[in-house]
């Protein structure tokens, strides 16, 4: 299998920042990987960071058996509606949220283990025309859905045993929400990006819509990945799946913008562009702390340090095919890379 692994390419002299192959999940039954994620799972008093893989009609939980070996713990079989994505619930244990649907999300389900009757279960959380969803701290989930002309933005919270509690409604903006991000440093603030390229801010406690700020026309359909408040400014990490290449910024994958929420004025802080001379566009990606990773249309995975605005590692497509997915691990700085054929590799950054 060693020949199958891609060899990471380093782009600078930061010797300690490396992308090292750790292990591979082998799933002979899986035909395609829809999504991959990590989850803390506790069984028999042992709490471990496990890997979750999603195919169109099933979701599997994998636990570490040995340094290079993973064993499948359980597979939830889903119905006829295909799985679209795994929705990580931060700081939770034994709870996995998934989104199902055709093109758009039509259903959100919770997968869990019930110690009461020693069985793995699944339960329905929400149905509708769901446009965006994000797992929040404290076992909560925010989603936006459209019914006729109305947009509904709702926060649902779960108990430790996975029971969903009464949801809270947030005041919806006129524009369709495409993505959410919690605001680090401000406990009750939630941010969203809209189809009209605006940023909206809510107060999660009161449900108030506090502000709408326009991002600008240069980078349409921006998606928010992370937001934090510092020194009175709101810093937002955005990706730009539809950005055009420019001479000054190259082909930008991620951008950090500083907003003054009081005046709605903003300024670009740093660009993270595709490596020089590397063809391809940003396809999909994820941000964790100051690290961003994305799958490029060339089939490679690129990693950026957002503080430097520089690509620090590149994982070219291997002999087994192009990369289709990239996710950061919940613990440490692990990177999960998924191929279209269902193969998932773990790397250490």
């Amino acid at each position: 299998n060693e020949a199958e692994q891609s060899t990471p390419v380093l782009f600078d002299d930061l010797a300690e920042e490396n992308l090292q192959f750790v292990s591979k999940l082998k799933d002979s039954s899986s035909s395609c990987a829809v999504d991959v994620s990590t989850v803390w799972w506790e069984a028999a008093g042992c709490r471990e960071l496990c890997v979750v893989t999603a195919c169109e009609n099933s979701v599997s939980l994998w636990k570490p058996l040995a340094p290079d070996h993973w064993g499948k713990v359980y597979t939830w079989q889903l119905g006829e509606i295909p799985v679209i994505q795994i929705i990580p619930l931060l700081d939770t244990c034994n709870l996995i949220c998934i989104a199902l649907g055709n093109l758009e999300i039509g259903e959100i389900r919770l997968l869990l283990y019930s110690s009461e009757n020693d069985s793995f279960k699944q339960s329905l959380v929400k149905t509708g025309n769901i446009k965006a969803v994000l797992g929040l701290k404290d076992r909560r989930l925010v989603s936006s859905s459209r019914s006729m002309q109305e947009q509904e933005v709702e926060v649902v919270s779960f108990s430790e045993t996975g029971r969903s509690k009464h949801g809270q409604t947030l005041m919806p903006p006129e524009e369709t929400i495409l993505a959410f991000a919690e605001v680090e440093g401000v406990k009750d603030a939630l941010l969203g990006t809209t189809a009209m390229n605006s940023i909206v801010i809510w107060n999660l406690k009161t449900g108030q819509l506090l502000k709408k700020m326009h991002i600008g026309y240069s980078y349409p359909a921006s998606i928010c990945h992370r937001a934090y408040s510092d020194s009175g400014l709101l810093f937002v990490v955005l990706s730009h799946p539809h950005a055009k290449e420019s001479e000054s910024c190259g082909n930008p994958a991620f951008r950090v913008i500083a907003f003054n929420p009081k005046t709605a004025r903003s300024t670009g802080v740093i660009f993270s562009s595709l490596p020089p001379g590397h063809a391809g566009r940003y396809m999909e990606g994820e941000v964790k702390d100051a690290l961003a990773a994305a799958v490029l249309s060339s089939g490679a995975i690129a990693v950026w340090d957002l503080l430097l605005g520089r690509c620090t590692a590149l994982l070219p497509p291997g002999p087994a095919g192009s990369w289709a997915l990239v996710r950061w691990s919940a613990g440490g700085s692990g990177l999960l890379a998924g191929r279209g054929d269902g193969g998932v590799c773990l790397y250490r950054y």
């Binding site: 009750d188 603030a189 020194s231 907003f259 003054n260 009081k262 005046t263 300024t267």
Partner: peptide
């Protein structure tokens, strides 16, 4: 970025916007 680019900055922007926004 300077204050003049972004306008007056408030460390309590969240509380201030919450008190100004409709309930």
């Amino acid at each position: 970025c300077s204050d003049s680019d972004l306008g007056p900055i408030s460390l309590n922007w969240f509380e201030e916007l919450s008190s100004e926004a409709p309930p």
